[in-house]
């Protein structure tokens, strides 16, 4: 029997204490999702983009200086500001907590990118081109976006769909965290992360690494953050967008001397 679809709600936890800023996630994402190569030209035009990017901050003044990294990807907000402004419903929220972009429906008004507080939506100003030697590298499970449409992180929805077809419906077993990890159904950035700073699972999966953080953050909404048992927080939490990505604060055993930090 074809089992009915299990209702998932996906979530990601980014442990900033573990992130070393190595950018493996960025490379994995570029190759998994058919992103064009960010050349110097594109950078100078300010039209280079990465679906997941590592933002780097400096803390303190030389020589007491520390580098801080934070990976920023689409937050898959529950109350996404990008969704209601789309005039053609090319972006919507699906049952699994994913903020979905349907490429062939998009007409490129760029309202969504202007309304996104996290700056994770990108517009294709040019037709993507790849060098001749990369002709056969494209992932067949992901569309190559043409010029004039918006794109963004999809939580590697193609891998989730592949997982559902192969595991839930063919092998008739549940899609738990162990299966996803073992069979490489996690998003490309998560499977590429060498320090396990990125974690991805169903938010209700007791065997997964994200449940405890989502439970804690949901239980203690913004404004009483000091009550939280874990280090979890959401980006721009005061805006009420309710992202499905949670960040864990960095634990600094050797903080900078007081007065040194200029709070960059």
């Amino acid at each position: 029997m074809v089992t009915q679809r299990v209702d998932h709600k996906w979530g990601m936890v980014v442990d900033l204490d573990r992130c070393t800023g190595c950018q493996a996630c960025v490379v994995a994402c570029q190759s998994e999702n058919n992103l064009p190569i960010n050349t110097k030209d594109l950078f100078l035009q300010r039209r280079a983009y990465e679906w997941i990017r590592i933002e780097r901050y400096w803390e303190g003044e030389f020589p007491d200086v520390k580098a801080r990294f934070i990976p920023i990807l689409c937050q898959h907000c529950e109350n996404a500001p990008c969704e209601p402004v789309c005039p053609v419903f090319a972006t919507y929220h699906n049952d699994e907590g994913l903020n979905v972009q349907i490429y062939n429906r998009c007409v490129g008004t760029r309202y969504c990118a202007n309304n996104c507080p996290y700056q994770v939506r990108f517009f294709n100003y040019w037709e993507p081109v790849w060098p001749e030697r990369l002709r056969n590298h494209l992932n067949p499970d992901v569309t190559v976006r043409s010029r004039g449409i918006m794109e963004k992180c999809s939580f590697c929805v193609q891998r989730i769909r592949r997982a559902e077809v192969t595991v839930e419906r063919r092998e008739r077993s549940n899609l738990d965290y162990a299966t996803m990890k073992k069979r490489n159904f996690l998003p490309a950035c998560v499977s590429a992360c060498p320090t396990n700073a990125l974690n991805f699972a169903d938010q209700a999966d007791v065997s997964g690494p994200v449940k405890e953080y989502f439970d804690d953050v949901n239980e203690h909404p913004h404004g009483e953050a000091h009550d939280r048992k874990t280090r979890g927080y959401r980006l721009l939490e005061e805006m009420g967008t309710k992202p499905n990505v949670i960040y864990l604060k960095k634990v600094d055993p050797f903080p900078l001397r007081k007065g040194v930090s200029h709070g960059s």
Binding site: V100, I102, Y103, V157
Partner: peptide, 9 residues
């Protein structure tokens, strides 16, 4: 399922 992402990629 009739979610868009079932068929659209």
């Amino acid at each position: 399922a009739t979610d868009c992402t079932v068929c659209h990629k």
